[in-house]
């Protein structure tokens, strides 16, 4: 456990950077470990946090219309809808929405479109891609299917890379037999699908 004496003089400054997510590599652990055991720094951190919150609560003033056209930005609206705007941008769009019926209507339409896209049914992958023990009967949401597909591709890629990179190292946690069986099964139903001989270290496999 780090003590106050172990900390650099600028620990206070690190707390501000920590609050802003601006610590350099290696500093995060220093700060979190220190915060774990130093009530003074916890107090200082909360005060810094309150100060920042106060600053960020300042209203965004409207510039004179003669200087700045008050815009309607659909890209901003989509990011607003998805919660992807930084705080200051969010406040600008939020303020604008209070006074602009056109943008409120646009936001409503974008929300409806997003809901429609997200309600698309998920599709189960072909059975030969699913391990028997993990097959599920329900329909997966589209997002989950996409994530699962990416994860599956990544897993296969990692497997191939791992096997090629370390041909003499037996995989520990990956069930190669199961993978090879599914691979062979796919070859039996898909004309033209080539069976690639599995690479194993030591011993033979069916």
């Amino acid at each position: 456990m780090a003590t106050m004496n172990d900390m650099p003089d600028h620990i206070d400054e690190l707390l501000t950077a920590y609050l802003d997510g601006e610590l350099r590599p290696g500093e995060l652990q220093l700060v979190t470990v220190h915060l774990d055991g130093c009530s003074n720094c916890i107090l200082a951190f909360h005060e810094l946090k309150e100060t920042r919150a106060a600053l960020r609560s300042l209203p965004m003033l409207r510039a004179p219309e003669s200087l700045v056209p008050h815009g309607h930005d659909e890209i901003q609206l989509s990011a607003y809808l998805d919660g992807e705007l930084p705080t200051t941008e969010y406040r600008l769009v939020f303020d604008h929405l209070q006074e602009c019926a056109d943008c409120r209507a646009n936001l409503h339409e974008l929300d409806a479109a997003r809901t429609a896209i997200r309600s698309l049914p998920g599709l189960d992958p072909p059975e030969f891609l699913m391990p028997a023990s993990r097959r599920v009967e329900h329909k997966w949401p589209a997002v989950q299917v996409r994530v699962a597909a990416v994860a599956a591709v990544a897993a296969v890629a990692a497997l191939v890379v791992g096997v090629r990179s370390f041909p003499n190292t037996a995989p520990v946690s990956i069930d190669l037999d199961s993978f090879a069986n599914r691979h062979v099964a796919r070859a039996s139903v898909e004309p033209g699908f080539q069976v690639i001989p599995a690479v194993h270290s030591g011993g033979s496999h069916p």
Binding site: L15, T16, D20, L48, R52, A53, L55
Partner: peptide, 19 residues
Amino acid sequence: RSRIHRGRKMLRGLLTWPL
């Protein structure tokens, strides 16, 4: 980093707490 920290800290001293 240093200026933001020192600026906020000064500001904290100038404001009446708790907010």
